[in-house]
């Protein structure tokens, strides 16, 4: 009799496994919501060289913040501090008013490189992002769902080496999203992609951010990207926040629209206020 049920359970994938009742914590994902981030007098020095001289910043819960700045100005350093990968030399980072160690929020960092495990199938790479739940029996199903969210469910059993650069970055995004973070830091994740793939990926990031409602901080060297995605753009220079610019444009925004172009011009003017920036003459 019992055997019969077992055989049926094995034959019929629709039957739930007998011994594994669905645990409470494995309930379907609700949109995680964001977390407010307060950065106060944040400084970071590597030995003698001081990189950040005192960053003050407030990021609202669910806000999309774009960070721009010239290469080497400390954008990655700032993100790594926010994501808890490094410890600040001074100042503090608070999540919903509490130090990172004492909050239950989940923060994830998406690197510039995909950093996929070459020896793990795509779906297993995504499962890495499940955090404590990666050993759960539901891990593969969850990973697959996240993979579907970035449109790669049919590549689940591939090795990362056969994917294109854009696909690898999408897998990395799925991995970052796997544990439904409240805060996602993105360190020039699209920097290495070709222009067309980048535009696709920007739309994907924006769509997922709107669905999930996490707080996003995106570092980019692409001013247009910063404006297209950000609720706000900040410019880091000389180790502090030099410029802050609200982007009050309805979404979805349109690349090449006059409003976007105007903001872009404003930022570039500021960046190159020594006059070296010449706005391109539009062809008649």
């Amino acid at each position: 009799m019992v055997d019969d049920i077992l055989v049926r359970a094995l034959l019929d994938e629709g039957l739930p496994p007998l011994s594994e009742p669905e645990p409470e914590i494995d309930a379907p994902d609700l949109p995680p919501g964001g977390v407010a981030i307060d950065v106060r007098g944040l400084t970071k020095a590597f030995g003698e060289t001081s990189v950040l001289h005192g960053i003050d910043l407030h990021v609202r819960s669910g806000e999309f913040l774009s960070v721009i700045g010239k290469s080497g100005c400390g954008k990655s350093t700032l993100l790594r501090l926010l994501a808890g990968l490094d410890q600040p030399s001074g100042g503090e980072v608070l999540f919903d008013g509490a130090a990172a160690a004492r909050t239950a929020h989940i923060g994830r960092l998406m690197f510039q490189e995909p950093r996929l495990l070459p020896w793990a199938r795509v779906v297993d790479n995504v499962a890495v992002g499940l955090g404590d739940r990666r050993r759960s029996v539901h891990a593969p199903r969850r990973a697959l769902a996240k993979l579907a969210a970035v449109g790669l469910e049919d590549r689940a059993d591939d090795w990362p080496s056969v994917l294109s650069g854009g696909q690898k970055q999408r897998v990395a995004l799925a991995r970052a999203l796997a544990s439904s973070p409240n805060f996602l830091a993105l360190d020039e994740p699209l920097g290495a992609l070709d222009a067309l793939t980048r535009i696709d990926m920007q739309a994907l990031v924006e769509q997922i951010w709107r669905e999930q409602g996490f707080t996003a901080v995106l570092v980019t060297h692409d001013v247009t990207e910063a404006i297209m995605l950000g609720d706000r753009v900040i410019l880091i220079e000389d180790g502090i926040v030099k410029l802050e610019l609200a982007v009050d444009l309805p979404r979805p925004r349109h690349r090449g629209s006059p409003e976007v172009a105007a903001l872009e011009k404003k930022i570039l003017r500021y960046l190159f206020d020594d006059g070296s920036y010449q706005p391109r003459q539009r062809a008649a």
Binding site: A83, L85, R108, L109, F111, E113, R115, L117, A120, V128, G129, G131, D132, R175
Partner: peptide, 21 residues
């Protein structure tokens, strides 16, 4: 080192880091 950092940032234990990365 980049993969190790990735593993750590996703909360892998030392054993998991060794075994998987």
């Amino acid at each position: 080192a980049q993969l190790v950092e990735m593993g750590r940032s996703y909360g892998m234990s030392n054993w998991e880091l060794f075994r998987q990365v």
